[in-house]
Simulated assay, not measured.
Amino acid sequence: MILADKMFPRIAWPVIAVALVTALTGCFSSEAPVSEIYGSAMGSTYSVKWVSVDGAPDEQALQKSIDELLGQFDREVSTWRADSDLALFNAESGGICMTMPTSVLELATLANTLHRQSGGSFDVTVGPLLKLWGFHGGNGAQIIPSEEALAQVLSGVGQQRLRIEGNRLCKDANISVDVSAVAAGYMVDKLVEHLGSFGITSYMVEVTGELKAAGLKPGRRPWRIAIEEPRDHNRVAQLIIPLDGYGVSTSGDYRNYFEFEGKRYSHTFDPASGKPVMHQLAAVTVLRPSAAEADGLSTILLVKGPKDGWQFAMDNDIAALFVIRKNEGFVSRSTPQFKALQQGEE
């Protein structure tokens, strides 16, 4: 998601697809071998639930190892600390290459793929636009910038100026990179890999609202997640679906926005115009085997909107649920791939 609040400034209510996860996954009998841990991550929280297996570490040991992974990721990728690898890259002017850790290189590779596939709708260099409009850093005041100020900031935006050479990240202009649009999903995938290294195959992993689940709970029941209705303040489940081997990400404009002269300005930006998207697509949920891909694709579809986003999803076989504003309410539209997964089919 291209979100102003995601990388990683503060605890916030993310736009998520797990509004009722605790209620749906926490009702086990006392003898059921299900473990769970919770912690802080990326300015928000994480949770991991898994079916215990012989030889796996206990909850305390596993949490320690997960916290270490998340801490290392923060030191490499966070743009909210001046000493992270990515922050040091951003502090340099254009025309440089810097050696980067694997996490940054993998995220940049995915970001470049999404940028090309989306025709530029996905862009990890829009951070200065978020700041200009008051969504990210600055004095916190959300404003409508002048066309002159917008043009000046847009001149420093453009993912096409970012490239990878071996183990180095390079930029041809003075751009700033923020990979928060895929970072949480990426860490979900990494934590899933970490669980797999201990033989754990039945789990639900959630980081700041992005999640993935696989396997079965005791009693051969599937993990289920609730996708919330896009309301500004209340958290209400719109539908509940089983999840097995898929990551899920929801992007929406209904939690982080401001209104001016009757218009809603959200924190999701069109990289081409430099302005918040203004269409009627309130939220979109994507299911994908890779949580990182789901994270990025939900952003792309939200940027493209209800018409172009739908066509992009259909052309690329994306399992997606669109929630569109209509009059005083919402209408939903699901791609065939999403409908099949909603019914628990392959």
Rank of each mutant, 00 (worst) to 15 (best):
residue 195 L to D: 04
residue 174 N to V: 03
residue 223 W to C: 08
residue 186 Y to Q: 04
residue 204 M to C: 00
residue 179 V to F: 11
residue 179 V to M: 11
residue 165 E to I: 14
residue 185 G to M: 07
residue 222 P to C: 06
residue 198 F to W: 10
residue 154 L to D: 00
residue 171 K to T: 07
residue 206 E to H: 02
residue 210 E to R: 03
residue 184 A to H: 01
residue 203 Y to T: 04
residue 202 S to W: 05
residue 202 S to N: 10
residue 223 W to L: 05
residue 168 R to Q: 15
residue 161 R to F: 11
residue 192 V to E: 07
residue 176 S to V: 08
residue 219 G to K: 14
residue 208 T to H: 00
residue 162 L to D: 01
residue 197 S to A: 15
residue 213 A to N: 06
residue 196 G to K: 11
residue 205 V to I: 12
residue 231 R to C: 02
residue 183 A to Y: 06
residue 158 G to I: 06
residue 219 G to M: 15
residue 221 R to N: 09
residue 194 H to I: 08
residue 154 L to V: 03
residue 190 K to T: 07
residue 175 I to M: 08
residue 221 R to I: 15
residue 171 K to W: 06
residue 186 Y to L: 10
residue 220 R to Y: 13
residue 207 V to A: 05
residue 228 E to R: 11
residue 161 R to M: 00
residue 174 N to R: 15
residue 188 V to I: 02
residue 227 I to T: 14
residue 177 V to S: 00
residue 211 L to G: 00
residue 161 R to S: 10
residue 206 E to G: 00
residue 219 G to E: 14
residue 158 G to K: 09
residue 217 K to A: 15
residue 208 T to D: 05
residue 214 A to W: 01
residue 182 V to W: 09
residue 215 G to H: 14
residue 216 L to F: 15
residue 218 P to A: 13
residue 167 N to Y: 11
residue 227 I to S: 09
residue 192 V to D: 02
residue 156 G to W: 07
residue 223 W to K: 01
residue 202 S to Y: 07
residue 182 V to D: 03
residue 232 D to R: 13
residue 153 V to Q: 10
residue 216 L to D: 10
residue 210 E to I: 04
residue 186 Y to S: 02
residue 167 N to S: 15
residue 171 K to D: 08
residue 171 K to Q: 11
residue 187 M to E: 09
residue 208 T to S: 11
residue 183 A to R: 01
residue 211 L to P: 03
residue 177 V to G: 00
residue 165 E to P: 00
residue 225 I to H: 04
residue 204 M to T: 03
residue 158 G to A: 10
residue 161 R to N: 11
